[in-house]
Design a protein around this nucleic acid. Structure first.
Lengths: 386, 386
DNA sequence: CCTTGTTATTTCCGTGATGGAAGAAAGTGG
DNA sequence: CCACTTTCTTCCATCACGGAAATAACAAGG
């Protein structure tokens, strides 16, 4: 089954690969592109010509040391970042976060709307309203991406989303008929991973893992420079309910040592509330743990050890060049980063290469940006994926 | 860097994909191949013609229910299994195991030779001698594959093999000049994984993991139907030194709870020897554990729990459709399979899909067969990989 | 200032793979 | 014997690609 999303820029396969190469790997000369894609110089002239005419690419000044080099100077090509704009939305259980980005995935504008109801039609209305507001006074966006937690089928239908209570909602169609824009719907984590792979810290990496900590746990795997598509369990979240230590402490969900119970923000807050009777915010818990209060320190320490174990296990089995830690819960690293690092070391072979771990505070707008990247991939470049 | 190994059957990319499709997925009609590879019917006539003329493919009788179907009957194509023969060798620290296989990777003959010395030249002499013996009275083999534990570069040079004491040995060249046959050298585990992916239980699977237990631990990952190439750590074996429980029992290598210490045959024998003073064989240890002797039962139980944990973690992070357990040490499953299964369950989410675990007793000839498959891939089909 | 050398890009053309249309082949069912 | 269906082949227009040669744009050196 191929979901050949129509791209209104009908690029040939050759043109597409050139466009993606330039988009992802910055300004490149024709010769350099020919080398990377293993094409002849003649082909490059042919392939770049229509892309330049379309306004997608432009010849730019050569950067860096142009002195001392012999021969005809190269003429690097770059994408025209604001030749097209894209909308990205992330739907949570009570809010829609939206961004407007360039082709380079730079955020131009942002906007939030709280969600009064979860009826698909009303949510689509909210999205349409936000679309109007975000694109007011600007050229018409080229596409729209939506990220939703849960199972998404064919990049258009929300198959199952527990927190929204949706099942088989044709969200892409609903939003398309209200906005007239081409729409791509995808799992939120998948979109976030794609964004990091194309424009973030995963740029140019062959093996790369994204781990997000927030209301839940997100896990994304990139191998061979391509995101490994979700399947089965993972879509429904079971895949992420890692049991880290079956003989570990009993956790709120009644299971021993599950990563979700030890690591996600709601569960950490639950643990503190159950012990102290007070409902305390996540950042406050981190602060008091850092200040040395025993109870929060214990909970945070356990979370840090859980994270370290998780990272070590991922490193052991997938051997990524880099692991990105993102989400609203990465404040944990600031407070207990050393515990995490030590736990990773304990769970790895002493002579194994150290894990490259990058932490990035990210908010919901970064998730919305991920959805916009999906729109870029599918609608502009027609990047066919499963 | 591309190691374009010359294939003396110069197949075009189209022909190659057709040949591989038929080789791996059994007899297929032209229409079926066209559907799978997304080609036009006309292309299929063109692409199959030279393959049939070469004697690589042949039209076979249609199998199964041909009754009741309308239209012209399809004319399935199949590879001519014994149109070509291949040699595969596995080099251990004291023995060379060799097989002669067909194009379908069926073993036609086997032969072992103990290794008197580990000098590269002498090993190459042994291989040349075995080549002569295995192909005596038979048509000349089309290619030769060699599997070695350790780091192999460019499919020809043994970069580092601790147990042989080799470093930068151009094994392919040494054997080529003695036999006149095209030679492919590869890491033994990599070769074994390829064989299982093409002709074994991994046939047609998208996500697939091979875990071997023997003198060491082997780990191979197949995603998107392709083996994930080794890199860095894993080549040198560190990647496989998984620490399963940093607070677990102290093991012979002085580390707590490493998978190699708990699970590999030499280490299990070491543990029993250290406790009882007697040097007991692996199978005997398993037998006495099954009979209820406390000391072996404890060691075997610990190994089973280690294996279960390992499998669960792999399942959690890679989510394969199937995990193949192979090697000389899989007898563990027969004795303590229930412990393994229970441990897997303990380490997974209760609603997660069960892990499909397949056990296959394999000896060193299966490893040699894997090397022959590498020869098929590279030499006949020119399957370009990293 | 002109020549030579070097590298990047373009032009031009032959080759070869591809898809699509039309037709032939080989059956089934009435 | 005649539709009808499905598979496979033939034939042809198209088009993407590589390779060779030409051109462009610079540096270095006389």
């Amino acid at each position: 089954m191929r979901t050949q999303a129509e791209s209104w820029l009908p690029l040939s396969p050759g043109e597409r690969s050139v466009a993606i190469e330039v988009l992802v790997h910055g300004p490149l000369s024709r010769t350099e592109i020919a080398r990377r894609l293993d094409l002849s110089p003649g082909s490059l002239t042919r392939l770049t010509k229509p892309l330049i005419q379309e306004g997608l690419l432009v010849e730019v000044e050569e950067a860096g040391a142009t002195e001392g080099r012999q021969g005809r100077p190269s003429q690097p090509l770059d994408v025209v970042a604001d030749s097209r704009h894209f909308l990205g939305f992330k739907i949570t259980d009570d809010t829609v976060y939206g961004v407007l980005t360039t082709l380079r995935s730079e955020i131009v504008a942002r906007l939030d709307r709280s969600l009064a109801a979860r009826d698909p039609g009303e949510v689509a209305d909210v999205l349409a309203g936000m679309t109007r507001e975000l694109s007011r006074g600007r050229p018409r966006p080229a596409g729209l991406g939506i990220g939703v937690g849960g199972l998404v089928e064919g990049r258009s239908v929300v198959g199952e989303s527990p927190f929204l209570g949706w099942r088989g909602v044709p969200l892409a169609a609903l939003v398309e008929e209200r906005t007239g824009l081409p729409v791509v719907v995808e799992n939120d984590t998948a979109a976030f991973v794609e964004a990091e792979t194309w424009f973030g810290v995963g740029r140019g990496l062959d093996r790369f893992v994204v781990l997000t900590i927030g209301a839940g746990l997100g896990y994304g795997l990139v191998l061979g420079g391509r995101r490994v598509p979700y399947s089965g369990d993972e879509d429904r979240g079971f895949g992420r309910h890692w049991i880290l230590d079956p003989y570990g402490p009993l956790t709120p969900d009644g299971r021993r040592g599950s990563a979700v119970s030890l690591l996600t923000i709601p569960n950490i807050r639950y643990q503190v509330r159950a012990a102290t009777g007070r409902d305390v915010g996540y950042e406050e818990i981190l602060a008091s743990a850092a200040a040395g209060e025993p109870m929060p320190a214990r909970v945070v320490g356990e979370a840090a050890r859980a994270l370290g174990t998780l990272v070590a296990q991922i490193a052991n089995f997938v051997m990524p060049q880099k692991i990105l830690l993102a989400g609203e819960g990465v404040g944990l690293m600031k407070v207990a980063g050393d515990v995490v690092e030590n736990t990773i070391r304990d769970n790895r072979h002493p002579r194994a290469a150290p894990v490259v771990l990058e932490t990035r505070v990210s908010d919901f707008h970064d998730w919305a940006r991920g959805a916009a990247v999906l729109a870029i991939q599918v609608l502009v470049l027609g990047a066919a994926q499963v």
